[in-house]
């Protein structure tokens, strides 16, 4: 079963109450205040707000741009978290070996954490500059083969790579620590039974890594969503031609650059529903497969 042992009725509430109070004041109350706008036509400086019922929702649901942005956002959350976890997992498996480079690499791979996401955007924009960046020689030979400013596919590749870079530290550490906690004796015993490295990866390392993988998935999905704002803002502003306009960025632009508070709040409400759904899925399907016993 689980560790749940104590049966006090109110004690857990008091224990969690500082957290709940902070959450209430700075998360749920602001979200609630914003939801109020979703049912009104709200002026930025207040005054004259009119109740319009579900009209804002009807309009947003009928808006193709909204659905396109939502689709991009969901695909991005899946692919961005998947790709960054895969890369971090490969690096963690490599760093788990006692090779000479391992201690240095373990240190280096945490460095990106200290760089703000907006700076990451600026840096990678240059690195993938079609004329001056690392792929420029390719363009010299085959003109126009790489241009993330025009070709949406290239733009996405650039964003995914920047995201992987900034996401490596956390996932890498957490997976590495998980790998290191696997007792050496398990490896030896399996090897003596004739299990090769792939077999041991599949049968021993990955199953024992499930608690860490679960944490990594939940937090990476969340980080890719909130991190997308900084990347899009500095790298593409939603372009080319709106191809990378994701919901978090769109909400920010609509609400806080263009003062369409009601439109932004309505989209936030929709995003909350999606986010709640994804979180629920993670707990329903993924957490069941996590093996906590050692």
């Amino acid at each position: 079963m689980s560790n749940a042992f104590f049966r006090n009725r109110w004690l857990p509430f008091w224990l969690a109450s500082p957290q709940l109070l902070v959450m209430f004041l700075f998360f749920y109350l602001p979200v609630f205040l914003a939801f109020f706008w979703a049912f009104h036509l709200e002026r930025p400086f207040g005054g004259g707000s009119q109740f319009v019922g579900w009209a804002n929702f009807q309009r947003v649901l009928a808006d193709q741009e909204f659905w396109a942005a939502l689709r991009r956002t969901v695909v991005y959350m899946l692919l961005a978290s998947g790709s960054s976890i895969l890369v971090a997992l490969i690096l963690a498996l490599a760093a788990d070996r006692a090779v000479r480079l391992s201690p240095l690499a373990r240190n280096l791979l945490i460095w990106p954490k200290a760089v703000a996401i907006a700076s990451v955007g600026v840096i990678f924009l240059f690195i993938f500059n079609p004329f001056l960046g690392v792929l420029a020689p390719l363009n010299e030979v085959f003109p126009g083969i790489w241009n993330p400013r025009i070709n949406p596919l290239h733009t996405w590749i650039m964003i995914y790579i920047a995201n992987i870079w900034s996401a490596i530290p956390f996932t890498f550490i957490i997976l590495l620590t998980g790998l290191q906690a696997i007792p050496e004796t398990l490896h030896k015993a399996a090897a003596m039974d004739g299990a090769g490295p792939w077999r041991r990866l599949r049968d021993i390392q990955l199953p024992l890594l499930t608690p860490q993988l679960f944490v990594a998935v939940v937090l990476e999905v969340a980080d890719s969503l909130s991190g997308s704002f900084g990347l899009i803002d500095t790298m593409t502003q939603g372009g080319p031609g709106g191809a990378t306009n994701m919901l978090v960025y769109k909400i920010y632009v609509d609400g806080f650059k263009a003062y369409d508070l009601s439109g932004a709040a309505t989209q936030t409400a929709m995003l909350m529903v999606v986010v709640a759904g994804i979180t629920a899925l993670q707990y329903l399907f993924l957490e069941k497969r996590v093996k906590y016993e050692r």
Binding site: G241, N245, A258
Partner: peptide, 21 residues
């Protein structure tokens, strides 16, 4: 009204035209 949003829309649509879409 909502002119900042309109500027973004204008950029988005004309970019598509410049790219030949």
């Amino acid at each position: 009204g909502f002119y900042v949003q309109f500027r973004d829309i204008f950029m988005e649509e004309t970019q598509k035209a410049f790219n030949g879409d």
